[in-house]
Amino acid sequence: MNSTPVAPNPAEDFEVHPLSGAAARPARQLSGPLAPEAAATLDAQVRAVDLRVPLLEKNDLLAERNRGYFLGRGLATLNLVSSPGAGKTTLLERTLDEFGRQTRCAVVVGDLETDNDGLRLHRPHAPVAQITTGGTCHLDAAMIARGVESLDLAGVKVLFIENVGNLVCPASFDLGEQVRVVLLSTTEGEDKPLKYPPIFKSAHLVLLTKVDVADALGFKRDVAVANIRRIAPQARIIQLSSRSGEGLPEWYDFLRGLAPAAKA
């Protein structure tokens, strides 16, 4: 009796189905390691590069350049960041009118649209550059470099940068400033630092603004201060009002400390 001819198995653990001729083992087991030559060509094709490049490399480099420029000119530079309407422009207006009479100041102010803030800040004794970002929610180091180029910095000791009103995006963008100032107004609630921690984490100075209306609003200053300290134990805190003038001498003292050349 003749039996059906069966193809010989090519390897010991390799079985061919007697009827269909298909491999009877899972494909995974069928594929062995690549021949060394084949593996070598594949490796040469897929190139893996390990590196440590900051995602914001361009901005970081430009920010360092700005910082060097400011330092070289003996300029104290402050980046003012807050939610929209926390009182940045109002504080700067009064600061230019008072502190700015003894110490020459300049301002670069950023807004999404309009030059309203630039016009409000306009003073014969203080050069102002307005940047309209056209929709970008933060200032970056390149915008500052361009803005500063248009300013006459002769004799200027303090440069204020009013950032776009936004408590999130400016946190990631170093402008080359010496001091990052975060403003928190009493109209915003005491827990703002807990809700928007990254920007507070990066602050050198936190200004608690509009304290003149704190009581009327039922705003608890001590709770706000405690929250700021939890997120930003490094930050100096000044409570002030651009309306009543409370706390402004402390703010001016802080500025004087940054601009030692202007003391005499």
């Binding site: 590196l51 440590r52 490049v53 900051p54 995602l55």
Partner: peptide, 10 residues
């Protein structure tokens, strides 16, 4: 950290 750490390409 905010870093690019590896790229694989052909």
């Amino acid at each position: 950290e905010l870093e690019l750490s590896r790229i694989e390409m052909t």
